[in-house]
Design a protein around this nucleic acid. Structure first.
Lengths: 347, 347
DNA sequence: GTTGTTGATGTAACCGTTTACATCAGCTGG
DNA sequence: CCAGCTGATGTAAACGGTTACATCAACAAC
């Protein structure tokens, strides 16, 4: 059965195609009886407009493209959820892809999306964003999420430096002196900023010295970093550049037979949902992931509507103190609602 | 700057539009010199075909739609990753949406996607899948993922019953007698099957009796279920219908001051990546999430190519024994590679 | 009674591809 | 030298919407 076209509907409702189009798209120049006939006929025939045809004449696709790096679970899904929710509320669709961090591949995906989307949400944690968006030839508005931002595109960023400063400062306040930082992947802008927040806090503290070990945001790398570290002597605290690595560290600490926070304190970054369910619950810098996604979508929508929306926004992480840092005398969680966020959308 | 059309390219290369189309789409009836001229001109003009126009004449969109329930983090992202990877390898795109479990909303999203996709991947954990796909009017091939399957559509399912049977059996073998099951949401087919696997194993064991408490797959519900349970007396083991609820249980057990597995054993279902990093690592039924997503995409592709591919496939979970069940004398993990799966795509 | 105005509807051009069919040059074989 | 073939290319008709413009009826104002 061939799917119904606008002409079929026109015939069934005994009007012209123009009238059908007007009736279904809410133009006000259609008389109520005619509109009813058209709507009835469309329903009867189960008519759905051909999106390609429509986009051919309107020059819109009502779709926004989203390109994410190969992020892990919880961060990724939180972001998607925020994006999809905002998108749907505007009647738009999401064309999603991820790149395994491979740069050439990301450019290829971007090119492939061009022509299918009205705007792009790009999460490129690397500094060479310009090279990437060049693949789009300026034909598609781009909004950046995370990473270092750009002069040429709107961006929704995380104040990583402030977050890392707060965490480090908190560890210092709790009495820890030797604090080791497990870094994120080289080249990753968010990771670099977190490192520099850590450095700033250590430097501001006076006599203490920095100590940085490499990592790449994966559990595995956190595990290895902590294992190597502990073999050479137990520091007062470990600050991992993201929660996922902190989980790896926790595992290594446990394997070693040490207790957190009694023998060693631990902190992460991101506040992924599972962070509070670890044993002990993880002190971390809370990033409003879903909200960032939503804000970026709103920005896209604004651009598409010709408005000039808030083009830059930086989200400051919230210090979330839990047991892992051993400094929870004045817990920030006290009295706050921190229930399961599985069901209710929290964006 | 108006974006270049095929006519611009034709003019630049001094050929007709038909030749441009043939040259760029790999038809073999174009002479090499001409093809080179066309490719050069297209590159020069930064030409990208208008996908709407193309889909209008080819009646294809090269896109598959994915509709997921409001799933939590790790499961969700694993599935997406498998889907996106498979999709890209076929030059297709993914149009993604999720429904917050609300049934009417899911139907609306499905309708909205119709006409923009060549096929749909639908994860509907509820039994009324027919009602949902009715929204598509049979115009779009549908492939189901999870849930109960259907006579009318290909389906890629989890053998939940076998998985739950294995877990329960394992707990029994470890010497636990009073095993309480924390159920999933009512109406959820996967959850119901897990329950029935649990029941079958208990019944097969002889004199023991079933004990089921309600849950809804959220951490919060696992936490509450275990708390209520423990207040009335400590069972030998808790088997949660998914890992996420098991995490909630773990929290409640810890709050109560009990140890896992010494005071009480615990098991989950799904083997989400974080399961092995819990304290203690969680015994669970391993589901090859990403592989399921990939298989479903391959099925879609087969349908679109007119082949009749494997239309039904049931994945049997793997029993993954870790410390939480207190029965790790013969650990299934011994000697297996279970390293961090953050970087390498494991699908 | 003519003219102008207004509101509802129809006509047809256009959006940018693909592709069936037509054309045409160059060759082969008689 | 011509018929027939082949390979490369051009012409133009779809594909299914939207929308500027034309049309037309009904009515108001003079």
């Amino acid at each position: 059965m061939r799917t119904a076209t606008i002409r079929d509907v026109a015939r069934a409702a005994n009007v012209s195609v123009a009238t059908v189009s007007r009736a279904l798209n809410g133009s006000n120049t259609v008389s109520p009886p005619t509109r009813n006939r058209v709507v009835a006929a469309a329903g009867q025939l189960d008519y759905v407009p051909h999106s390609g045809a429509r986009s051919l004449s309107t020059r819109r696709t009502d779709t926004i493209g989203v390109l994410l790096p190969d992020l892990h679970g919880e961060f990724f899904s939180e972001l998607i959820r925020g994006i999809d929710t905002a998108t749907r509320s505007h009647g738009l669709h999401v064309l999603l892809s991820h790149s395994h961090g491979d740069h050439a591949e990301a450019a290829a995906v971007l090119r492939a999306m061009r022509g299918r989307v009205d705007a792009m949400l790009l999460m490129s944690p690397y500094a060479d964003e310009g090279e990437l968006t060049a693949a789009l030839g300026g034909a598609v508005p781009v909004v950046l999420v995370g990473g270092g931002g750009s002069r040429s595109h709107p961006a929704f960023l995380i104040d990583n430096e402030a977050g890392a400063f707060m965490i480090t400062r908190h560890l210092l306040d709790a009495g820890h002196r030797r604090i080791v930082f497990v870094a994120g992947p080289p080249g990753n802008v968010d990771a670099a900023q977190r490192l520099s927040g850590y450095r700033a806090a250590i430097r501001a503290s006076g006599g203490l010295s920095e100590e940085v070990v490499p990592g790449d945001f994966s559990e595995e790398s956190g595990f290895r970093a902590a294992r190597r570290l502990l073999a050479a002597g137990v520091p007062d605290a470990i600050f991992a550049a993201n929660d996922v690595m902190a989980i790896g560290c926790l595992e290594a600490i446990r394997v070693r037979g040490l207790r957190v926070p009694q023998d060693i304190a631990l902190a992460g970054f991101d506040n992924i949902p599972v962070a509070r369910f670890l044993d002990p619950p993880l002190t971390t810098a809370g990033v409003p992931i879903a909200r960032i996604g939503r804000a970026a979508v709103e920005c896209c929508v604004g651009i598409l509507k010709g408005r000039t929306p808030n083009t830059h926004q930086t989200f400051t992480p919230e210090l979330i103190i839990r047991a892992s840092s051993g400094g929870n005398k004045h817990s920030a969680e006290k009295g706050r609602k921190r229930r399961g966020n599985r069901n209710g959308e929290v964006v």
